[in-house]
Design a binder for these strands. Structure first.
Lengths: 115, 115
DNA sequence: TCTCCACATCGAAACCCATCTATATGCAGA
DNA sequence: TCTGCATATAGATGGGTTTCGATGTGGAGA
């Protein structure tokens, strides 16, 4: 498959990303790559750190309650938000470090080494 | 639709994100939220700043050439990579500021004001 | 216990996306 | 001009995703 490449050269330093790593990163990004979930995250980010209850998320988004539940599950499975149950209400809040880590992975600037 | 909300309260400071804004951000993120495109970006980021030619991207990704072309188009339409034609070859390179801007938007940490 | 409320899950319908093969385009050399 | 190569586009197909209405679940009050 690669024996014929004599046309152009690639200096390429890094040894390519593994399939596993690429899929993990893509999956995390997919969790955010939806207008409804972007809005959800925005609301959760700009709200109180102890979370927002679902009943306050349904109406302003203009979609049905099961849809909100679905999107919150996606975000939760991606580790981007967390759920706290209190009486009948479920409060959702962002996991700031998870979002920050995702942001760091996207940033092409060479980062300083982390401890 | 909203007159009955008397169950829980939301302090909510920010005035919700506009549909347009949310969709723009989601679309940019969608461009990255794919394993193949993550790998492509990784290669372009870790390669020389003057770009990598398509012929060097096709083989290592294990997908057909039109698929590579398709993904590069997605990334280009999102403004994340740019294309430079030289003779028969097309060289692609990352737009670092675009990626960095996306990373910044994801970061929940309150940023310093930009000029 | 019975009922109500908040939220989650189910199943179906509509839609979008990644991939392929086949083909077009455009440059360069013979 | 004709041929060959690198890349892009077209059209088709299979699979995944978002949305909904209907229903399940579990806590709290009557």
């Amino acid at each position: 498959m690669d024996a014929s490449a004599l046309a152009c050269d690639t200096p390429l330093v890094a040894p390519a990303m593994s399939d596993t790593e690429a899929e993990a990163l893509a999956q995390a990004l997919k969790a955010v790559a939806d207008p409804t979930r972007v809005k959800l995250l925005h609301r959760l980010i700009s709200a109180a750190p102890d979370g927002v209850c679902v009943c306050d998320l349904t109406a302003p988004l203009g979609i049905a309650q099961p849809s909100v539940s679905y999107h919150l599950r996606i975000l939760r499975q991606a580790g981007l938000v967390e759920r706290r149950q209190e009486r009948n209400f479920a409060y959702f809040s962002v996991r700031a470090e998870a979002l920050r880590r995702l942001a760091t992975l996207l940033d092409p600037t060479p980062q300083e080494v982390r401890t």
